[in-house]
């Protein structure tokens, strides 16, 4: 297997961008589950989403939908980073 990493691409910049993306996704991940679903749930329950109290909805439904969306958004943005820094597999 040839090793074609002649440092023509900016590995440091790529890793920094990756960490930034991970941090942003983790902030959303934390806020919807631990924030809205647990810590702020009692407060949010006074707001209604259809028949759902909002805090309850985040704990029993919303967090999970957002988790799914987060992974695909992450995968898409990482793909973009791979291209931008020229480090994708192909």
């Amino acid at each position: 297997m040839q090793h074609d990493h002649e440092h023509t691409h900016d590995e440091k910049g790529y890793w920094k961008a990756t960490l930034g993306l991970i941090r942003n996704v983790l902030i959303v991940w934390f806020v919807v589950s631990y924030g809205f679903g647990i810590i702020l749930a009692p407060m949010l329950n006074s707001i209604k989403l259809g028949g759902y109290p909002l805090g309850f909805w985040f704990a029993h439904q919303g967090s999970m939908y957002i988790f799914v969306a987060l992974i695909f958004i992450y995968a898409k943005l990482m793909g973009n980073l791979d291209e931008k820094f020229g480090v994708s597999e192909k």
């Binding site: 991940w29 679903g37 647990i38 704990a59 967090s63 992974i71």
Partner: peptide
């Protein structure tokens, strides 16, 4: 409501 910890806990790990 408290049972939501299983729902969030067993899915959030995938992120």
């Amino acid at each position: 409501y408290g049972g939501g910890l299983f729902l969030m806990g067993w899915t959030g790990g995938y992120v």
